[in-house]
Simulated assay, not measured.
Amino acid sequence: MRYISIEQVEPGQYLGKTVYSANGTVMLSAGVQLTVFMINTLNRIGVTMIYIQDKTLEDVETEDVLSERTKQAVIREMNDTFEAVRSGKEWSTKKIGASVNQIMEDVMNNKEVLVQLTDIRTKDNARYVHALNVCMMSTLIGMNMGLNALQLKDLAIGALLHDVGKTLPGAKADPALDLKQHHTWRGYELLKSKHEFNLLIAHVALQHHERLDGKGIPRGLLAADIHLYAKIVAVANMYDNLINAFDGEGLLPHDACEKLMSLSGEALDRDVLIQFTRIVSVYPNGMAVRLSTKETGVVVRQHRGLPGRPVIRVVKGEKEEMEVKEIDLAVHTTVFIEAVLA
Rank of each mutant, 00 (worst) to 15 (best):
Q72N: 03
V85H: 00
F82N: 05
A30M: 04
V85D: 01
I39K: 05
Y51G: 01
M49V: 09
E58G: 01
M27F: 15
S29W: 08
E83S: 10
V60A: 05
V85S: 05
T48A: 08
T62A: 15
L42V: 04
Q72I: 04
G31N: 11
L34D: 06
R69M: 14
V60I: 07
E58N: 09
E68H: 09
R44I: 06
D80G: 09
R69L: 06
Q72S: 04
Q33I: 09
L66F: 08
V36H: 13
T62L: 02
L66E: 04
N43M: 05
E83T: 06
E58L: 09
D54Q: 04
R86H: 13
R76P: 04
R76I: 05
I52H: 08
F82V: 10
E68W: 07
S87W: 08
D64G: 09
R86W: 11
S67D: 04
M27T: 05
F82S: 01
N43R: 11
V47S: 04
V47E: 05
N43C: 09
A73C: 03
I39H: 12
V32A: 12
K55E: 15
L28Y: 12
E61Y: 09
M27L: 14
I39G: 05
M38G: 11
S67N: 09
G46Y: 14
E58M: 08
N40W: 05
Y51N: 00
T41S: 13
L34M: 02
D80Y: 06
S67E: 10
V36A: 12
L57Y: 15
V74K: 01
V36D: 13
T70Y: 11
M78E: 07
I50K: 00
E83V: 14
L28A: 07
K55Q: 13
V60H: 02
R86N: 14
V74E: 09
T81L: 02
R76Y: 03
L57R: 01
A30N: 03
V32F: 03
E77P: 00
I75D: 00
G88Q: 06
V36K: 11
V85W: 03
T48S: 12
I45G: 07
L28K: 14
E61W: 07
K71E: 12
T62M: 08
M49Q: 10
G46A: 00
N40Q: 11
F37Q: 15
I52D: 11
V74I: 10
I45T: 06
Q33E: 15
T81N: 00
D54P: 04
L28T: 07
V85N: 01
A73H: 11
Q33N: 07
T81S: 00
E77L: 03
G46C: 06
I50E: 01
I75C: 00
E61R: 12
T81I: 08
T35H: 02
S87I: 02
T41Y: 13
E77G: 06
N79I: 05
G31D: 05
A84C: 00
N79M: 01
R44N: 10
D54M: 03
E68M: 12
D64T: 10
L42Q: 01
Q33T: 15
I52V: 14
M78W: 05
M38H: 13
